[in-house]
Design a protein around this nucleic acid. Structure first.
Lengths: 155, 155
DNA sequence: TACTAATGATAAGTATACTTGTCAATTTTA
DNA sequence: TAAAATTGACAAGTATACTTATCATTAGTA
């Protein structure tokens, strides 16, 4: 007889669900309509203007096919532009619009603030500890993910 | 400028993705076609024969609407039966079939074994520590989830 | 006992998150 | 340089995971 409630997989899923809920709540309360992926995408494009979808997906550890739909929605909201690269006609280069930059600037403090709520119930030392363990575990398991994080190579 | 890669929300999502990947890999390798939710559902019905969908959802912290689809697929695979309760005609009572019990028995050791792989990269002490912190954090955040875990009341 | 509130389940719609397959373009290699 | 392999993007299909709304039934209350 297995006890699901003590399994790492189950606990991780639950914490992820809690985290997603908190994100959604804060967005709704501030009258924004954004998901965690959408925020991560905008934020990464701001720091890497002109990057293509596949590279973007690699930088935030998302699947390429999923990223296509995310970009669709952000483009529909006119937060970014998608244009065919001059050097590689397969690739779409991504740039934030002014509206995208303004929205992101408003979003950032919100998102930073809600992170603390995800680990409410832990004291500062425990938060630190958990964060370290999460980093270690994700780094070790990265290659097992369907969408491994792919660091930018030094240019 | 925010660094997503250090945010709890992002790390939790990645670890969850890794965990889901490992689960899918092990299932595929053993020629089974099951998701984590499906396993959790089967396992919980075995221990609580005759329970209804809403209670099941509460016991494993899933959304009721989502659970309906999960049960659909398990019923199509003939692993469980869904029958209208005699005492409450709104509720569907769930029971494993013989096939369901046999399949679950074969699945359990597989699922137990793959749990260790999720936290590969951590030594035994760290695994223990992480598990404890995850439990504490999920318990504290439970009510913030869209689908809070609802313990069985003593009968 | 009629009214209301709550509950179990489903339906429709949105957004991930993945799969496989395809296409076009580019890169590698033989 | 021609053939092969890889790559970026999209399309279609499956499975969560949620939302709101609706329906039927049951429970609680006035």
């Amino acid at each position: 007889m297995v006890d699901i409630s003590k399994m790492p997989g189950h606990l991780i899923r639950r914490l992820n669900q809690i985290s997603a809920s908190i994100f959604a709540d804060h967005m709704a309360r501030a009258d924004y309509d954004f998901t965690p992926v959408q925020f991560a995408a905008l934020s990464t494009i701001l720091e890497n203007p002109g990057l293509d979808q596949a590279t973007l997906a690699g930088l935030i550890a998302y699947d390429r096919a999923t990223m296509g739909g995310v970009i669709d929605r952000l483009e529909a909201k006119q937060l970014l532009t998608r244009s065919i690269s001059l050097t590689d006609r397969r690739a779409r280069q991504l740039y934030l619009t002014d509206k995208g930059r303004q929205t992101l600037a408003a979003l950032e403090p919100l998102v930073s603030a809600l992170q603390g709520e995800i680990l409410q119930g832990l004291d500062d030392g425990e938060k630190e500890q958990l964060l370290g363990l999460l980093e270690k575990a994700t780094n070790a398991g990265n290659q097992l993910s369907r969408a491994p994080l792919q660091k930018k190579r030094a240019s």
